[in-house]
């Protein structure tokens, strides 16, 4: 007979919601990158909607977690679950923000083609986020640790993009506004990668049970 049934249910509920929030974060990244690449304004509108859902989930999880801390005093692994959940939701919420910002820029861009390097970056970052979520759901320590290395790749690509766009501005100063907006998108993607790395670090702590 397991004890504290109500407490267990509440804790599980929080963790379930967190997984749902992870899925939304994956969705929003995929859709905002797709909208950006394809100049799909309708898809960009949808991104805003998902962002609102993510915000709502963040508040919900945070509230439930804090309540559980006050009322039930979780310890040991339960404590780590809650404390990690409280941190991961912040990363996920930021990811939602960045994705929304990318979607916003999509609406203001000219028809000039998107550089391949940014497309490539988008693919890698989405992959990172998926790995981060998978490492959390499956408690996969190896996968979580790998994220840091992938992030080095993203940083390298970001440097390349910066050089490319700087060259483009020099060549054709009229394009400078477009180029600045592209660098913003690259920066947002780079930030999403950082948050994925953060999530990986939290997962590492969760598995090791360290404070």
């Amino acid at each position: 007979m397991p004890a504290r049934a109500d407490y267990r249910k509440k804790l599980q509920n929080i963790l379930d919601n967190l997984v749902i929030m992870c899925r939304h974060a994956e969705d929003i990244c995929e859709q905002s990158v797709a909208a950006f690449v394809a100049r799909d304004l309708e898809l960009a509108q949808n991104v805003k909607k998902i962002e609102k859902t993510i915000d709502k989930l963040e508040r919900k999880i945070e509230k439930a977690s804090l309540r559980l801390l006050v009322m039930e005093h979780p310890v040991a692994s339960d404590f780590h679950e809650i404390s990690v959940a409280l941190k991961i939701v912040i990363d996920l919420e930021r990811i939602g923000d960045q994705a929304k910002d990318i979607a916003k820029i999509t609406a203001q861009l000219t028809d000039a083609p998107v550089p391949e390097s940014i497309k490539q970056m988008g693919v890698i970052v989405i992959h990172m986020l998926k790995d981060a979520v998978r490492s959390y759901v499956n408690r996969d320590l190896e996968l979580a640790r790998l994220l840091d290395k992938t992030d080095d790749k993203v940083d390298a690509i970001f440097d390349i993009i910066m050089n490319e766009l700087a060259a483009a501005i020099q060549k054709n100063p009229e394009n400078s506004k477009n180029a600045l907006q592209l660098i913003m998108v690259a920066k947002y993607l780079e930030r999403i990668g950082d948050h994925a790395v953060n999530i990986g670090e939290r997962v590492e702590k969760l598995i090791q049970g360290k404070i």
Binding site: M1, A3, V75, A76, S77, H80, G209, K210, I211
Partner: peptide, 22 residues
């Protein structure tokens, strides 16, 4: 104590301190 309540080594300890004991 810090260790017992944050990262117990034995599953039975974990089950007891988290109230999963039964």
């Amino acid at each position: 104590t810090r260790q017992i309540f944050s990262n117990p080594k034995d599953k039975r300890t974990e089950n007891y301190v988290t109230g999963r004991f039964g």
